[in-house]
Structures are given as C-alpha cells and as structure tokens.
Simulated assay, not measured.
Amino acid sequence: MEGVSTNSYIDSMKWKKEDDARYADPDERSKLEQEDFFKLLTEQLNMQDPSKPVENDQMIAQMTSFTMAEGITGLSERFDQFASDMTSNQALQASTMVGRKVLVPTDKANLESGAGVTGMIATPQTAQNVKISIKDSTGATVKTIEIGDMAQGTKEFEWDGKMSNGEEAPAGNYSFSVNAQVAGQTEELPIQMHARVQSVSTGGDRGVVLNLKGLGGIKLSDVTEIS
C-alpha cells in the first residue's frame, strides 16, 4: 500500500499465536523482555536522524528506567513467593494445634458433656465485687460465679459446667460477661476464653484460620495462649 512505511524488524515482533506458544496467555502479550528492549534500542539508533542523534543521557535514562522496572517486577514476584511460603509454613505449624486448646478474645465458650470451661479476665486496676455471669443460647442466666476482689492484671477462672441448681448444664455454647466495681463505678471487664481447635484453614484474606469447636474460625494471629 502506498504511503505506508514498514520495518521488517518491527513486523517480526508482532505476536503470532501460531508461531510462538510462549504467548498463549493474553497477559504475556504485553510483556517486553530485556532482549526485546535492547533490540528496540538498537533499531532506534539505526533509524535516528543523523543530524539529531540521541543524547547519551537520554539513552542511559531509557536503559535505567527499563532496568528499574524489571527489577521491581522481579522483586514483586519474589515477595509473592515468599508470602506464599510463609503462609504454608504457618499452616504446617498451626496443624500441630489441632485437638489442643487456645486462649482467644471472645466472650463465648463451647461446653462439652461432662466437662468444664476455663477463661481469663483482666482489669486495668484493682477491682471489687467481681462477678461472672454465664448465659445459655436463649439468654437465660444459668450460673453466677463470685470472684470477689481482684488486683490489677489478669486472673484465670473455671466453670465446672454445673448450673446454679447443681445440675449439669447441657452441652453447647454459652456466653460470659464480667462486671466489677472499678474506682467506684460498675464496669464490664474484658474476657478471653479457651476453645478447642478442630481444624486449620488457609487461603483468602484472613491467612491461616483456626476452626474452633462450636465457635467458628479465628485468625491464628488472634491467639494469645496455647494450652
């Protein structure tokens, strides 16, 4: 066709599905490798206007920009691989926790038949008249545990699984709340409960997740203690 100039080298770089299986992936079509860059640079030098040659600093800037882009891409790929390896390693370590109990920041616990539950409460300063209220799934209070006075810090507690009338509470989930007098005012204190790990999951935005019996999943990073 008249008026249209062609260049054999540029034409040779056009993607042809039947000639190059490397670019079967559409994403690969937009990638310019180092060899291609230097071929283009050489072609640019061959086709430049002799009266206005490319300045050295321009050429160096082009080479530097390509090298930096290639380096950043390589670093990103290595980081992704590192993150994947770390997740796999964490999952392997977390798998050893299956069947064990962990302490997690929740006000709920799963009561197993014939067993009790344990937890931990905390207070930023001395507290008086500390009480733990235990409610079943309907919201009815089944037991109140009197702790009394508590110094600043943390304190473990245990519920033997018996209700106020002395009978065994049915197996299932129960909620716990802690109230106390702190500096003359009634406040609710933070609580953590022990839960049994049933399985471990990986993948997704949450990373490694521990699946707790009756309570669902929780991130591995939220575990504060392993029993």
Rank of each mutant, 00 (worst) to 15 (best):
P190F: 01
G139M: 14
S177W: 12
E156C: 08
G119Q: 15
S137D: 13
T141H: 03
D136I: 01
S175G: 09
T144S: 14
Q192Y: 07
E146P: 08
F157P: 00
L111T: 12
S137M: 06
Q181V: 15
Q125V: 09
V130G: 07
G114L: 14
A127W: 02
T144N: 14
G207E: 03
L215K: 13
H194P: 05
R196H: 05
K135E: 08
V209E: 10
K155L: 07
P170Q: 04
A127M: 10
T138L: 02
A115M: 12
V178H: 11
G161V: 00
A171N: 08
G184C: 12
G204L: 06
S113M: 15
A127Y: 01
G114Y: 13
G204F: 06
S164A: 14
N129R: 11
G148F: 08
S133V: 05
F157H: 01
V200C: 15
N110E: 06
V178N: 07
I121Y: 03
D136C: 09
V117G: 04
A169W: 00
A127K: 01
P124H: 10
Y174K: 01
R196W: 00
E167R: 15
Y174G: 03
T138N: 15
G203D: 01
G172W: 05
A183F: 05
A115I: 03
G153F: 03
G172H: 04
V200Q: 06
S201C: 06
S199Q: 11
H194Q: 11
P170D: 04
S113G: 07
A127T: 01
S164C: 05
H194A: 07
N110F: 13
G153E: 00
T126D: 13
W159T: 07
G119S: 10
F176V: 12
G161N: 00
D205E: 15
L212S: 11
F176E: 02
M150F: 15
T138D: 06
P124K: 08
G148V: 11
Q198C: 09
E167P: 02
K162D: 13
G153T: 03
D149L: 06
E158R: 00
A195H: 03
A183N: 13
D149C: 13
Q152M: 11
T186Q: 15
G172E: 07
A169M: 06
V208S: 02
A109S: 14
G214Q: 00
V197N: 05
A109L: 09
S175N: 09
T154R: 14
M163P: 02
Q198W: 03
F176K: 04
T118D: 11
Q185T: 14
I147R: 01
K143N: 11
M193G: 05
M163V: 02
A115C: 08
E156R: 10
V208N: 01
L215Y: 09
G148H: 11
Q198N: 11
G153S: 04
N165Q: 04
K131L: 01
Q125W: 05
E112R: 14
T126F: 08
N165G: 04
T144D: 13
G172N: 10
V208F: 05
S133M: 02
A140V: 09
E146L: 05
Q192T: 10
Q128Y: 02
G161M: 00
V197W: 10
K131R: 15
T138S: 14
G153Q: 08
I134F: 00
I134A: 00
I147N: 10
A183C: 06
